[in-house]
Design a protein around this nucleic acid. Sequence first.
DNA 1: TCCAAAAGCTATTGCCAATAGCTTTAAAGC
DNA 2: GCTTTAAAGCTATTGGCAATAGCTTTTGGA
Lengths: 189, 189
Amino acid sequence: MARAGVTKDRVAEEAEQLADEVGLESVTLAAVAGRLGIKLPSLYKHIDSLGGLRATVGERATRELTEVMVRATAGKAGPDAVSALAHALRDWARAHPGRYAATIAAPRVSAGAEPGQVQAAEDAVGLIFDVLAGFGLGGDDAVDATRGLRAVLHGFVALEAAGGFGMPADVDRSFDRLVASYIRSLPAY
Amino acid sequence: MARAGVTKDRVAEEAEQLADEVGLESVTLAAVAGRLGIKLPSLYKHIDSLGGLRATVGERATRELTEVMVRATAGKAGPDAVSALAHALRDWARAHPGRYAATIAAPRVSAGAEPGQVQAAEDAVGLIFDVLAGFGLGGDDAVDATRGLRAVLHGFVALEAAGGFGMPADVDRSFDRLVASYIRSLPAY
DNA sequence: TCCAAAAGCTATTGCCAATAGCTTTAAAGC
DNA sequence: GCTTTAAAGCTATTGGCAATAGCTTTTGGA
């Protein structure tokens, strides 16, 4: 009965949606199969393993996030571009928490990472690098600044997602000020 | 045969060591029990559940990290204190990756968090708050600056632990510059 | 010395990932 | 239009794990 019409992409899409709903760690193959209307073992006609599916989700999510940031920074430069990239990343991460988590867990280059995954991660970092290029940074300075921005953005988003910030004060404002503060520091790199 | 001499603290210690060795997510009750020389079901005489054990590890790790940061900042103030706190946190996180991960996953105040866990998390944040107090910050400014420092530190440490930084450039230097950059931005808060 | 609570055990259940091997569908070739 | 075959589904099974039930043994205090 080969008629459920399941494809690798549909499996990945369902896994992504589920990850956003219940958390990346709580995605089970049984639940993904159930959503697709097939039984768990049938999934193995489309994936290698749970780990492989997670890696696929990570790569797709990384490409999606990169695309979102590219659009957000199009036609902008300097502080405007950095600010737009920062807010685009946070907005997307809040809308897609499971996908976002997959982008961080993904680039395990140490283990046997697929070329596509590595490329996707490099493209994402490359975009940040390019956006910072307008500040006249070169060599190690640019590397340090890129790492700094990635740290600032991931740290804030991850703590926010983990419920690490108490209710009271305005979290949006805290983010705005952190990003603005980072941008002001760029000429010093 | 009540003679293995297992206590709640010993269970937590073994879970912590295992978390540092294989990762927090890969800690199984079977492995913890094996290390203690007892069978898995016997563990339930000392813990409530796997989730409860993870919460206990998180609380203990938060207290340990706070203590490390307190010692590192003792007798220091201003930029020196912030820098010492930052480096103490990163050093401890690199030495104890599983424990560190537990400190972030822990403070799920939204769900039913134990009072002890909430207190431990508040103490840790309180220390950062106090260290930043020397910069003349008050009210929301202090909250924003505290969130900013937490984001910077967690982001860098988490990306580093995930293998997010490619091999080449000196990671220590990137961290030093990010922390210095943050400290320079403090008067502007 | 006794006895009751603490701490261990075996057995069992249910969920999950993964594999083996069978069946059915559907498309491609004739 | 018929046949063949690969793809895509299925059931059955295994092994690991968390969790619970219920029994046994130890051991410290009355």
